[in-house]
Amino acid sequence: MLILKPNCECCDVDLPPESQNARVCSFECTFCNDCADMKFHGVCPNCGGGFVPRPIRPTKHLEKHPASAVRFNKGHAECASYASSITR
Rank of each mutant, 00 (worst) to 15 (best):
P55A: 07
E63C: 04
G50A: 07
F51N: 00
V43A: 03
S85A: 06
P58W: 05
C25Y: 03
C29D: 12
F27L: 07
P58Q: 06
N21K: 14
A83Y: 08
P58R: 10
S81T: 08
E28G: 03
K74N: 13
A67N: 01
D34M: 07
G75S: 09
P16T: 04
F72G: 10
L62R: 15
E63A: 15
F27Y: 13
R54M: 02
K39L: 14
P45S: 02
R57K: 03
S68E: 06
R71Y: 14
L4F: 12
K60L: 09
R54K: 10
R71I: 13
E28A: 06
T87S: 14
A80H: 12
M1W: 14
C11Q: 11
K39I: 09
R88Q: 15
E78L: 05
A80M: 12
A80Q: 12
D14Q: 12
K5C: 10
L15M: 06
R54C: 04
K64E: 15
E18D: 12
G42T: 01
E18K: 06
D34F: 11
A36L: 03
E9D: 08
L4M: 10
F72M: 09
A22R: 04
L62N: 03
H65N: 14
C29I: 04
V13G: 02
N33H: 11
P53W: 02
K60R: 08
N33Q: 13
S85R: 12
T59G: 05
G49Y: 15
F40Q: 04
G42H: 00
F51V: 02
G49P: 00
F51P: 00
C47R: 05
G75R: 03
P45W: 03
C79M: 08
D12L: 14
A22C: 01
I3Y: 14
F27H: 10
A77D: 12
G75F: 05
T59N: 08
C11I: 11
V70C: 09
I3P: 00
T87F: 10
P66S: 15
S85H: 01
H65T: 09
T30E: 09
R71E: 11
C25D: 14
P66M: 12
G50N: 11
C44Q: 03
L2A: 10
N21F: 12
L62F: 00
L15F: 09
T87L: 08
K74H: 13
M38G: 00
C35K: 11
K64P: 01
A36D: 06
V52S: 09
L15E: 02
D34T: 11
L2P: 09
M1H: 14
V43W: 05
Q20F: 02
E18Q: 11
P17T: 00
P6M: 02
D14F: 08
P16V: 05
S68V: 02
H65E: 15
K64T: 15
M1V: 07
N33W: 07
R71F: 15
S26M: 05
Y82P: 01
L62S: 04
L4D: 11
S85I: 06
E28I: 01
N46E: 12
N21R: 07
P16W: 07
N33T: 13
C11Y: 14
T59E: 11
V70M: 13
K74Q: 15
N21T: 04
A36W: 02
P58F: 10
R57N: 02
G48F: 00
